[in-house]
Design a protein around this nucleic acid. Structure first.
Length: 104
DNA sequence: CTCTTGACGAAAC
DNA sequence: TGTTTCGCCAAGA
């Protein structure tokens, strides 16, 4: 009966979809809320395979230091998406967790 | 079943 | 202090 009708991946989708514009969270936090406190790495793996036109606000997920984990072009795209929501982000791709961290 | 893969994170160096 | 190594675990092959 308690079949995993919703996989870890699906729970991650729902959690990220609930992050309001102008706020951010971390991979570890998403993993925790999804029920696997040490599966932060899996969250990143899931986001890496999102289709291009996805409606999921994947750009609101940052690493433990409030920084962008993507290299090159991905870095630029995520930084621009965050700035478009009014989030201040420096050239290193880091935001203030204290200011923007989201909790339910 | 085993083995591999990582948009992570914390601990060692 | 910055850099490297190691542990973690969902998913797919």
């Amino acid at each position: 009966m308690d079949e995993p009708t919703d996989s870890f991946r699906q729970r991650v989708f729902q959690i990220i979809a609930a992050i309001p514009a102008g706020s951010i969270t971390t991979y570890g936090e998403v993993a925790l809320l999804a029920g696997s406190p040490r599966a932060a790495r899996q969250v990143g793996g899931i986001l890496s395979r999102l289709p291009e036109g996805t409606a999921l606000p994947w750009h609101r997920v940052l690493n433990r230091h409030g920084g962008i984990s993507l290299p090159g072009e991905g870095f630029r795209r995520q930084k621009a998406a965050l700035e478009a929501e009014g989030i201040e982000i420096n050239d290193q791709g880091t935001v203030s967790l204290e200011r923007y961290r989201w909790q339910w």
